[in-house]
Write a protein that binds this DNA or RNA. Structure first.
Lengths: 187, 187
DNA sequence: CCACTGATGTCAGCTACTGACATGAGGGTA
DNA sequence: TACCCTCATGTCAGTAGCTGACATCAGTGG
């Protein structure tokens, strides 16, 4: 057996989720999270840049998935269609049932500091998508607007998927939201 | 003459802008800002909730201006058109020349922590606009998407206005960006 | 047998932020 | 004039997020 129990990072994430959900983000200290994970505060900050980041560890994978899907999208799709469709690939990350994402999202929704972090992650994702669109030949301005539109569609779809009781897939929600955005923009 | 030099709040804002611009946001301590303004650290936190908020003091006025303009917009305008046009009223806040806003924006652009704050302010502005649209009879989903679209248009237009050398007005930039979004969404 | 690596622990320190209490000029009132 | 009340600011002590420097020691490879 090794010197340390393996999976420190995962234990920290798990402990943080539980404590943030139980007593709230501000009422939880990093020392408490570390203790619950059987580690020290210093180790927490070696795995995560700050107290919020522990909830956003999967974000980079999301970006990679979406970018790969975007690069693989048929060339004849419009910028907005391509970007939105690329989000379909994110289902691979979230899984079939929205239960897990729902728990995490309810923590974020309850704490403005966490919303700030989520927003900048989404903004960066949007910038990455815009770059991906430019690589497809879309002009800079159009790419930026299409990317922001796609992110708005994703947010809407994700919220609906997480909230809804019916078993609609994220994919279906994305298509619905995309259609609504197009309708809104052409009215 | 009073016990204190008046204008404490303004002095704090001014000192913070200068120091953030000079040595960067993280390298500036609140104690230094307060000292430059002839006050104490404690007083800084009585005027501003945290170290970032000092740069975002005018945000509430922006929201009020835009909401008022939205309420006054002709009923026959589409949701997206109404929301975008409402941003025209913000010119009253920014002034004719982009020099002031440009300085502030370059500070924000250089510091992720400040971008986070800016993003949540914009998100809240978007939510407020969505509510305003619902009051005009737009459905919840369409209102949310139109509001996010309008915010994206505003961001694009604002950046262009602040960056550009030519003397294009914010108003013109808004119209351009709106046309581009519509084009992107209908392609 | 030894040197090196790398995840973790320990410790000291800075700074953002907060609560509790003190201060004292301005202004109103008897 | 004497009194008191308000309220922006000061003072002080304390919590907690976060960092740098250094120590520890199982595993690994030579």
């Amino acid at each position: 057996m090794g010197r340390w129990v393996p999976g420190a990072r995962g234990r920290l994430q798990h402990a943080a989720m539980e404590l943030y959900a139980d007593r709230g983000f501000e009422q939880t200290t990093v020392a408490e999270i570390a203790a619950r994970a059987g580690l020290t505060e210093r180790t927490f900050f070696r795995h995560f840049a700050d107290k919020r980041e522990v909830l956003f560890a999967g974000q980079d994978e999301l970006t990679e998935l979406v970018l790969a899907a975007l690069a693989a999208a048929p060339a004849e799709l419009s910028a907005l269609d391509a970007a939105t469709t690329a989000f379909t690939a994110s289902a691979e990350l979230f899984g079939e049932r929205p239960d897990g994402p729902r728990a995490r999202q309810s923590i974020i929704d309850a704490h403005p500091e966490l919303q700030e972090r989520e927003l900048i992650k989404l903004a960066r994702l949007g910038s990455a998508i815009a770059e991906g669109l430019e690589r497809r030949g879309v002009t800079t301005a159009a790419a930026s607007l299409a990317a922001q539109g796609a992110v708005a569609v994703f947010r809407t779809a994700f919220e609906r998927w997480v909230t809804a009781d019916d078993g609609r897939s994220l994919d279906v929600c994305l298509r619905e939201a995309l259609a609504e955005l197009k309708k809104v923009a052409s009215a």
